[in-house]
């Protein structure tokens, strides 16, 4: 059992995932590295980012449902808007941007 107040290291993981490759993407112009097979939401959350969108009245939004139902986690991927970050697996070279123009 991992220490509850320390980071969760792969070595502590009881299900013992195989060592995974990396995936390299760009988030708002910055290079970011993730674990191969991770979703874009997974990479953002793992990097400590909880919110990346604003609702119509400017309230912060990130992942809520995690299964593609709520559409809170939308991002721009390679120039294409309204991609659900929790559903899209990151691919090497993906350019992820935040969409800020949802405000009415």
């Amino acid at each position: 059992m991992p220490p509850p107040d320390g980071p969760f290291r792969p070595a502590d993981d009881p299900i013992r995932p195989a060592p995974a490759g990396t995936v390299r993407i760009e988030v708002a112009g910055e290079p970011v590295q993730g674990v191969a097979g991770q979703t874009i939401a997974g990479i953002l959350l793992a990097g400590g980012r909880l919110a990346w969108r604003r609702s119509r009245t400017g309230r912060p939004r990130g992942v809520f449902c995690g299964i593609g139902v709520c559409f809170d986690c939308l991002v721009v991927v390679n120039g294409l808007r309204d991609v659900r970050a929790c559903q899209r697996r990151a691919a090497d070279g993906d350019r992820v941007e935040f969409q800020e123009d949802d405000r009415g």
């Binding site: 993981d13 979703t39 939401a41 793992a46 909880l50 912060p60 939004r61 990130g62 809520f64 449902c65």
Partner: peptide, 23 residues
């Protein structure tokens, strides 16, 4: 409930099982 850091229980489950990320 719309603050970041509030998740559905299912999101916590999906991120734990599918990504090994704790919310």
């Amino acid at each position: 409930w719309d603050l970041p850091g509030v998740f559905t229980a299912g999101a916590a489950q999906a991120l734990a099982k599918g990504e090994r990320i704790a919310v």
